[in-house]
Amino acid sequence: MGAFLDKPKTEKYNAHGEGNGLRYGLSSMQGWRVEMEDAHTAMPGLPAQGMADWSFFAVYDGHAGSRVAHYCSKHLLEHIFAAGWGSEPAGAHRDSEAVSPARPSVEAVKSRIRTGFLHIDEHMRGFSDLRGGADRSGSTAVGVLLSPEHLFFINCGDSRAVLYRDAHVCFSTLDHKPCNPREKERIQNAGGSVMIQRVNGSLAVSRALGDFDYKCVDGKGQTEQLVSPEPEVFEMVRSPEQDQFVVLACDGIWDVMSNEELCEFVRSRLEVSHDLERVCSELVDTCLHKGSRDNMSVVLVCFPNAPEISEEAVRKDAELNKHLESRVEEMLSGSGEEGIPDLVTVMRNLSADNIPNLPPGGGLASKRSVIEAVYQHLNPQREEDGNGADLEDHW
Rank of each mutant, 00 (worst) to 15 (best):
S228M: 09
D243I: 01
P229N: 08
V233D: 00
D251Q: 02
P229E: 02
M236K: 04
C250R: 09
R238C: 09
S228W: 11
E241F: 03
Q244T: 03
Q222G: 11
C250G: 10
V247Y: 06
Q242V: 05
M236F: 00
C250I: 15
L226N: 04
E241W: 02
V227I: 15
E232V: 01
E230H: 00
P231D: 13
L248E: 06
V247C: 12
C250D: 10
E241T: 07
Q244N: 05
D251R: 04
S239I: 00
S239Q: 13
P229C: 01
A249V: 04
V227H: 15
G252Q: 11
T223R: 07
E224C: 10
V227F: 12
R238I: 04
D243V: 02
V227S: 12
V227P: 12
D243N: 13
E224L: 11
V246M: 05
E230R: 02
E235A: 10
L226D: 09
E232F: 01
V237C: 14
V246Q: 01
S239D: 10
E230C: 01
S228T: 12
D243L: 03
P240W: 11
V247N: 03
E230Y: 05
E241D: 15
P240Q: 09
P240L: 12
P231N: 13
V227K: 11
S228I: 13
E224T: 11
E230S: 03
P231H: 07
A249C: 05
M236T: 03
A249Y: 01
Q242K: 15
Q244R: 10
V246A: 04
M236G: 00
D243W: 00
Q225N: 10
D251E: 08
F234G: 00
M236R: 09
G252A: 08
L226H: 04
E235H: 01
G252V: 14
F234I: 11
V237M: 14
C250Q: 07
E230A: 06
Q222H: 10
V247D: 08
V227A: 09
V233H: 02
P229W: 08
V246D: 06
S228G: 05
D243E: 01
F234R: 00
T223I: 15
V246H: 06
Q222D: 12
L248G: 12
F245A: 09
E235W: 01
E230K: 10
D251L: 08
E235N: 08
E230W: 00
V233K: 01
V233N: 00
V246F: 05
A249M: 02
Q242I: 08
E230N: 11
C250V: 15
P229G: 06
L226K: 04
V233L: 02
A249E: 04
P240A: 09
E232R: 01
D251V: 07
P229I: 05
S239H: 05
E224V: 12
S239V: 08
Q225M: 15
T223A: 13
E224G: 10
F245T: 08
V237G: 13
R238G: 02
E224Y: 12
P240D: 08
G252K: 14
L226A: 07
V246K: 05
L248W: 11
E235V: 14
S239F: 00
T223Y: 10
R238V: 01
S228Y: 10
Q222A: 14
M236W: 00
P231M: 07
P231F: 05
D251C: 05
E241P: 04
Q244S: 02
M236E: 03
